[in-house]
Write a protein that binds this DNA or RNA. Structure first.
Lengths: 249, 249
DNA sequence: ACGCATGTTGCATATTATGCAACTAGGGTT
DNA sequence: AACCCTAGTTGCATAATATGCAACATGCGT
């Protein structure tokens, strides 16, 4: 396929700037790309307008711009979330004895992108890559409460505990964001309770949720708060690892 | 100034992709930018060719590409070098009792971008933002020996010790890169000796130099080696902080 | 004050990006 | 299995626009 040449030239400029130690001037860029100064000037201005390059105040030479940091960092977090999260999932398993899961928002559902199983004989089996509803899982409720808050139109019940009333769910989500963790009290699978907490990136944007699932016999309602604070603290540690700054609230 | 529209469209696509959780398809991009599918397709292919976007294997949707991480990370290191370096400069002052400086290559000169003063009564005063010659300062020699190695045409003497002979300087630089640190033996200012070492980034590229300056009476030639190893070890620690991988040589 | 180098603007022209339409390829449904 | 529907790619004529030239502007060093 034919490439869009003026776009290509702009991208080539970015690559050129990476390898220049102190930025480049318009003429220098023009020479490298074998185009006219005027074209280089216009391309650089366009790149600057969108923050992909910026001019050094002192020397007026062009340098790579802050937008690249934003985009690069953003991508880095998403790609490596799974890798970063793994040790924290293990820590969750160690501290709670239950299975730990990591999910992100995908197609308005909770996508399980990692799990670490507990060694208990009785444990919750689930599969990486599966999509689960947002409104009746702990991980999903986190993604709803702290991220994209639009509640689905249809609240299909999976157990008799599934919350199918819109306002009840809204109240639950409000409570969730207030206390910092979400609970699934046998709302998706009978006999399974889950607890989850939000994971933030360096810009304080929600990137995913981590949590634990266990049989209702072990994850009792009396111990929910205890599980909650463990999950919250480990999610906070993971967020810090991703560059989340707690001073920004 | 009029912007280059096709470049602008490409950059807009990158911004769009940042805010989409699971990438975007050709049609979706076309709708957002209010252009034809075919144009979107061609723009996306161009971005992909240069690594600024990539297609998800599974869904064929476009995501931000690895090139953004490369460029962003690169820039981040340069911007934050000063911040990262500060504690190491303090450490240098603590361990040597002399003033510590940080410089980068700028316009074929050594640009002092930070300093931490010692508490000694007799100390070297210098100013942040000043440009010094590469061939007769310790920081400059590091930038020459490990970075851009072109020796200036004119070797203007500042003191009677300034090396003005090309081959002598070349021999000094060879020695510098061999032992890992550079010396300025009253070659720029009378009565001042300096020692400096290189700072590398995550890609093993030289980003700057740090070093100390003190009166010749305290920074004696007998103790130069001792100062050298302190500076080298702290420069190495700073490099590691920037992601420099010592396994890569 | 002067000259040199770098950067910006106006404008005519030729390049090229664009939209349309036709075509291809998957995915889901009946 | 045949079908449709959506998403994506390609060919092509046209209109848009990126380009180079030249003139102008600006800043730096001598």
């Amino acid at each position: 396929m034919a490439e869009i040449q003026s776009l290509a030239k702009g991208l080539k400029i970015l690559n050129l700037l990476e390898h220049s130690r102190n930025g480049m001037g318009t003429t220098e860029v023009a020479t490298q790309l074998e185009i006219d100064k005027s074209s280089a000037s216009r391309l650089l201005h366009t790149l600057a307008k969108y923050g992909f390059v910026e001019q050094d105040q002192l020397t007026a030479r062009y340098l790579l711009g802050p937008q690249l940091v934003t985009l690069g960092q953003h991508l880095l977090n998403r790609i490596t979330l799974r890798d970063h999260a793994r040790p924290y999932l293990h820590e969750l398993v160690d501290k709670t004895g239950e299975c730990a899961h990591l999910a992100i928002l995908a197609q308005r559902q909770a996508l399980y992108i990692d799990q670490v199983e507990s060694t208990a004989a009785l444990r919750v089996e689930s599969e990486i890559g599966t999509l689960s509803p947002l409104y009746c899982t702990a991980l999903g409720k986190i993604l709803l409460a702290f991220g994209d808050s639009r509640i689905p139109d249809e609240l299909t019940p999976f157990t008799h505990r599934t919350v199918t009333d819109r306002s009840t769910l809204e109240a639950q989500l409000a409570q969730t964001s207030k206390r910092g963790y979400a609970i699934d009290d046998e709302e998706y699978n009978y006999g399974v309770r889950c607890v989850a907490a939000p994971v933030y990136d360096h810009k304080s944007a929600l990137v995913g949720a981590i949590g634990i699932s266990g049989p209702a016999g072990r994850v009792t309602l009396e111990r929910i708060d205890e599980f909650g604070s463990v999950v919250v603290s480990i999610a906070a540690a993971l967020s810090a690892r991703l560059g989340y700054d707690f001073n920004l609230k």
